Amino acid sequence: MPSLTFRTIQPADNQALAIIVRNALAEFGANKPGTVFYDATTDALYELFQQQGSIYYVAEENGVLIGGAGIFPSPGLPADTGELVKMYLSPAARGKGIGKILIEKALAFAKDAGYRKVYLETMPELRKAVSVYEKFGFKYLDGPLGNTGHFGCDVWMLKEL
């Protein structure tokens, strides 16, 4: 039986997470400009998530990092809105409910941190993720919120907590 653990990000997780994020984007043909594939913060997620109002959870199976998801107070978003960010899983982690647990943890943090809404940006290439977000009650928006700089994303969603 695999041993599955969830915890907050640690400095030693940076390299493994950057690989998971970039490999997932490349796998689905979403490794394009204007995405986190080219974002320098992808290599320093631990440091990024030290900001007030943010958190990043990672999942490990048998001691190997297999994915993560976080909440971040992205620039330009309303004060009551956090962003669900960097939700990526390695291929071995998919289809096991691990993403669902990571999203549940992130949404619970957002609510406890005082956010009333959670925003996300994604792209059609990540169809499976979009269907998961729909099941969580995220609704489609006509355009982006805030100033994430991710002009490569053209699916925007918002959930009321």
Rank of each mutant, 00 (worst) to 15 (best):
D112P: 03
K105D: 03
L25N: 01
L107D: 04
D142C: 06
F6V: 01
P75G: 07
P33L: 08
V21W: 00
P91C: 05
A93P: 00
F37P: 00
L77Q: 08
V36I: 14
L48I: 02
V118T: 15
K128C: 07
L126S: 02
P11E: 06
K96P: 00
N147F: 12
A69C: 11
E104D: 15
A113K: 13
N23W: 05
F109W: 08
P11A: 11
T122V: 03
A110M: 06
L4S: 09
A18T: 08
Y46N: 03
F6M: 00
F72C: 04
K111Y: 13
A16R: 15
E61I: 13
A44R: 14
L107I: 10
A26N: 06
L158T: 04
T122C: 03
L4V: 11
I19Y: 12
F37L: 01
V58K: 03
P2A: 12
A12Y: 10
A12D: 10
Y115S: 10
Y115W: 09
E104V: 02
L141W: 11
L145E: 08
A26G: 08
Q10H: 13
I103Y: 01
R22T: 09
I55G: 00
V155G: 02
E134H: 15
D80V: 07
L126H: 00
L141E: 11
P144Y: 08
F109C: 04
Y57L: 03
A44F: 11
L17Q: 09
A59G: 09
K100G: 07
D39Y: 02
D142T: 10
L161M: 09
P33N: 11
I9L: 05
A106C: 15
K105W: 00
Q51I: 14
I103V: 15
V132M: 09
T148S: 15
L48H: 08
K117S: 14
P33F: 11
R22S: 05
L145D: 08
L89S: 03
P73G: 02
L107F: 12
M123Q: 13
N62V: 07
L17T: 07
P78N: 03
M157C: 03
S54W: 04
S74A: 11
P73W: 06
D43L: 06
G67W: 00
P11W: 13
G53M: 02
A79K: 12
G97W: 01
Y56S: 03
M123N: 12
I103Q: 04
A93N: 04
L107A: 08
Y57T: 01
G82F: 02
V132Y: 05
V130L: 11
D142P: 09
K135L: 10
L48V: 10
L84M: 13
D154L: 03
Q52D: 12
L141Q: 06
I103T: 12
E61K: 13
E134S: 09
Y133K: 01
H150L: 11
E125W: 07
P124I: 06
G95D: 01
L25G: 02
V64P: 02
G67A: 05
S131Y: 13
D112R: 12
E134T: 12
C153D: 09
V132Q: 14
K128G: 15
G99M: 01
A26C: 06
M1E: 07
K135Y: 08
I101W: 00
K111F: 10
K135T: 12
E61R: 14
F136H: 06
L84T: 04
S74W: 13
K135H: 14
L120E: 04
L89R: 02
V85N: 07
E60D: 12
G68Q: 01
E27R: 14
L145V: 13
F28Q: 06
P144G: 11
D112K: 13
